[in-house]
Amino acid sequence: MQTQQRQKIPILQNQVVVFSKNYLPLARINIKRAIVLLVTGQAETLEFSSTQQWEVRSASVVLQIPEHIRLTSGNPERYWKSPAVNRREVFRRDGHTCQYCGSTKHLTLDHVIPRSKGGTHTWDNVVTACEQCNSAKGDRLLHEIPMTLRTKPKAPIHPAIAFAEQFWKEQQTIET
């Protein structure tokens, strides 16, 4: 009896990769959610050369749950709104580090093009800066002082795109 329980627990902890209708990897979900999507016809099995399958049994049914499934219903390109430009989201985007010196202490927000000089409060103009760098930059443009940005500020990308990029990077490292 204990042997059977040991085998069931790891299966339910496995993750399944869900692809959109047009084969964009969207997310990893637990195997229970994958079963629901497959049984209700909202998803179908995807088989790659290295696809793993898990056998799940109930009193009347034996299911083969694949490592990858593809949604068959729903809007393939869900509308996603970029989050508002605020302190928490800018810090998250910039990895909680000053975009001028790399410090992680006493962080503030800085407008690359100061608002007094026509700069806007948008994703491509707001960066994380430590108090020291923010004071040193002041109300000046970057070309007026010897400071450079570590990364170009940009709006966050759609979560599905970020997941897809990470998924394909992981696949490349597995294959090599």
Rank of each mutant, 00 (worst) to 15 (best):
W80T: 02
I31W: 06
N134K: 03
T108F: 00
T128D: 00
V56N: 08
T40S: 13
T51H: 10
A129G: 04
V112P: 00
G95I: 11
S82Q: 13
F91N: 01
A43D: 12
G119C: 02
G102E: 06
V39P: 07
V62C: 15
E55N: 09
V36A: 09
H106D: 09
C101F: 13
L71S: 00
D139N: 07
G119W: 00
V90Q: 00
W80V: 01
D94T: 05
S103V: 01
L63R: 07
Y100V: 12
K137W: 09
R57D: 15
L37V: 12
S60M: 08
V62N: 14
R93L: 05
H121I: 13
H96L: 03
V127K: 02
A34W: 07
L38Q: 14
Q52G: 05
W80Y: 08
N134Y: 10
N125G: 06
V61A: 12
E47C: 09
I69V: 11
L141G: 04
T128V: 13
W123Q: 03
S60I: 00
T108V: 01
D124C: 00
C98V: 08
I65S: 03
Y100L: 15
D110M: 03
L37I: 12
E47V: 11
E67G: 11
E44Q: 03
T128N: 05
D110Y: 01
L71K: 07
S58D: 13
L46Y: 00
C101D: 10
D94I: 02
S58H: 07
R115G: 05
K117W: 12
C101I: 04
L109D: 01
T122K: 14
G138I: 01
L107D: 01
D94N: 05
L141N: 02
S116M: 00
R92P: 08
R87G: 06
F91T: 03
E67I: 09
T40K: 12
T45L: 12
E44K: 07
C133D: 13
A59L: 13
V56P: 09
S50D: 11
V39Y: 10
L63P: 02
L71E: 02
L37P: 15
A129P: 00
V61M: 09
L63H: 14
S135K: 14
T51S: 07
I65G: 04
A129S: 08
T108W: 08
T128C: 09
K32C: 11
T120A: 12
H68Y: 15
R115F: 05
P66F: 09
V61K: 08
A59Y: 05
L109I: 04
I35N: 14
